[in-house]
Nucleic acid binder design. Structure first.
Lengths: 346, 346
DNA sequence: TAAATTCTGATTTACGTACCTCAAAAATTG
DNA sequence: CAATTTTTGAGGTACGTAAATCAGAATTTA
């Protein structure tokens, strides 16, 4: 049988109250007694029953998710996953709230973080924007003892406790590697191939990192592939369509497109409308209804995906662990880069 | 505040005892009273506090993992992951036990299942062997009301409650697709390319399914890629080295190798020793120390992987849910096929 | 209508921990 | 040594649910 507080009390020859004082770090225990109790704890292999402890404490977790109100499928999906978690959370004495903020707006994010800080929740998850003022706001949350988790886009070297998202440099490198290998042969000849990159905004770190990874692999391993200046579509389908269509018009020789942000609906439309003799090789991020259809049709060749559901559940697990001061299982919280080809669509 | 049993009792104008009878499906409640209580439950949005309920019940979960005592890296890793889960389980009123069985031995597996059945655990996870007697044993577990989960290798159409493993047909298709695309250009010319497949044994279901997926994609989309007769390495590094070396000697034109089983150490050695002018494209399964090193060196081009840790944790989550009669979050329990290139190694 | 049966309510104990109070014991101080 | 402070023990209540008992009420049956 699992040992209980009563068992350690008996084993240590002390009383329940003393054991409780030791366990919960309350004052009024001599060092000798304390160590005697601690020995008994170690000897019996006692582990506090968290469920019972939380019940006794009447503990409830209150988490806030700050999400950009973006109009792309990925962010909509992310919202949905958080809502799903909210629906399930009632059974787990956990209350989760969503706070919407305008996308790509550091000041709005800081505002939201400040307001959330005032409520003193048990934890905060947010899609980071890489800006000094955001960093400062996160620092204030840390000072207040509120665990923070960045979601999808990170804020490294800041005081955030965890990042629930993919390694974007690795994602970019993977895209570069696939692009280089897929292009080799059919496109890259003596004079090389030209590749366009469509991003949302160079303000967010995930997009910068993907570009960095992509460029470095191309530079290292595929020197005769030329990367055109980055197109910014602000993760907006309409704008993405415009800039891609424009690029395709100006560069008839584009052999590949790497879409490292969102707004792929527009990219797909632009590629379809261009009606090129030889369709460019397209690698995009995030498996959505439109990218999935495009993959099946052959308009997109590969999709790199991050599972929003996993990210949300991981963020909640980590926030809960941090709130309880428990360690996280690193392997469980690593968010993987899914690679989808038309043959392994789930 | 979250409503409790007391609140529904008050709201329904009944007593706590009656509410308890309704909630736990105990007899002695008239239909009228029952529905009154159920209305109150719905109206207040009551959800039973599982932690408190389990505490009151003194419920402990006892799970058994039946694992083959195989000495390949993947199975060793699987063992380790279960041991890790055991180490963590003390905090979660869960007791997990490992039962080792000889590999590829249906009778031994059936024996183990029978012995486990006698103990009446709360759930059983096992690496299935596709045989009628195993199917029958699983049926007896189901009759006894013990939830079962197949791990890594499935037993389809049986009475198992869940499969915690990858879709092996999709894995084979993915390998085929990567092989086809990577080969296009540098290798596949007018006269096509030749590809070898190394399996453990065609008697194992996973291997059969992977081959099936691989062959069908090649057949559908890459008609000028020729697949040589399957080489059987029995998941043994030494034998794998022999058969691969032999194949490379006899077919100088081998442009690609798909290793869909274990024993990759031998495959790697054979490829390295062959010293071909143009190294074949190699796609293998399971990220281990040796495949990781080969990937980094460029001896292997892609590795398809299943995360043993995820499989184990998923199996435990599902067993727990089944034991409590709760639904599982499908998205969370889908085991993904990881694709690793040298650029996205974790 | 009386008797038997089925419901229902009130109350209690338990699960393992947290947290509180009060008194007694031990250690420290003057 | 007495007075003071610190430490310890004993006991209780609470968290939300499960499970049990028992008496009384309502219903059904004879």
């Amino acid at each position: 049988m699992k040992p209980t507080v009563h068992d350690i009390a008996k084993s240590a020859g002390g009383s329940l109250a003393t054991v409780d004082r030791v366990l919960n770090d309350r004052p009024g225990v001599r060092a000798v007694t304390r160590s005697k109790v601690e020995e008994a704890i170690a000897a019996l292999g006692y582990v506090r029953d968290l469920a019972a402890a939380n019940l006794a404490k009447g503990r409830t977790y209150s988490f806030v998710f700050i999400l950009p109100e973006n109009d792309n499928s990925f962010m909509i999906g992310l919202h949905e996953e958080v809502r799903g978690a909210i629906a399930r959370s009632s059974a787990e004495r956990t209350h989760i709230r969503i706070v919407d903020v305008p996308p790509f707006d550091p000041d709005a994010l800081v505002d939201a973080l400040e307001k959330v800080l005032a409520e003193k929740p048990s934890g905060v998850a947010f899609v980071a924007i890489d800006a000094p003022e955001v960093r400062a706001a996160v620092g204030r949350l840390k000072e207040a003892g509120i665990p923070t988790v960045t979601l999808v886009s990170d804020l490294p070297d800041a005081s955030r406790d965890h990042y629930a998202g993919i390694d974007n440099i690795a994602a970019g490198r993977t895209a570069g590697s696939l692009m280089g290998r897929f292009l080799s042969g059919p496109f890259v000849g003596e004079r090389g191939a030209t590749v366009a990159v469509l991003a949302g905004s160079m303000l967010v770190r995930d997009h910068r990192e993907r570009l960095e990874g992509f460029s470095s692999v191309i530079g290292e391993s595929y020197p005769n592939v030329l990367i055109l200046p980055v197109l910014e579509g602000r993760d907006d389908p309409a704008l993405a369509e415009t800039v891609v269509a424009d690029a395709l018009r100006r560069h008839a020789d584009i052999a590949g497109i790497y879409s490292l942000g969102a707004g792929n609906r527009g990219l797909i439309r632009a590629v379809q409308k261009a009606g090129m003799s030889r369709r460019p090789l397209v690698i995009a991020h995030e498996l959505t209804a439109s990218t999935r259809a495009a993959l099946a049709e052959g308009v997109i060749d590969a999709v790199l995906n991050q599972d929003a559901g996993h990210e949300v559940r991981s963020a909640i697990r980590v926030l809960k662990a941090k709130a309880d001061g428990l360690p996280v299982i690193a392997g469980q919280e690593r968010i993987r880069i899914d690679i989808f080809l038309k043959d392994n669509l789930p």
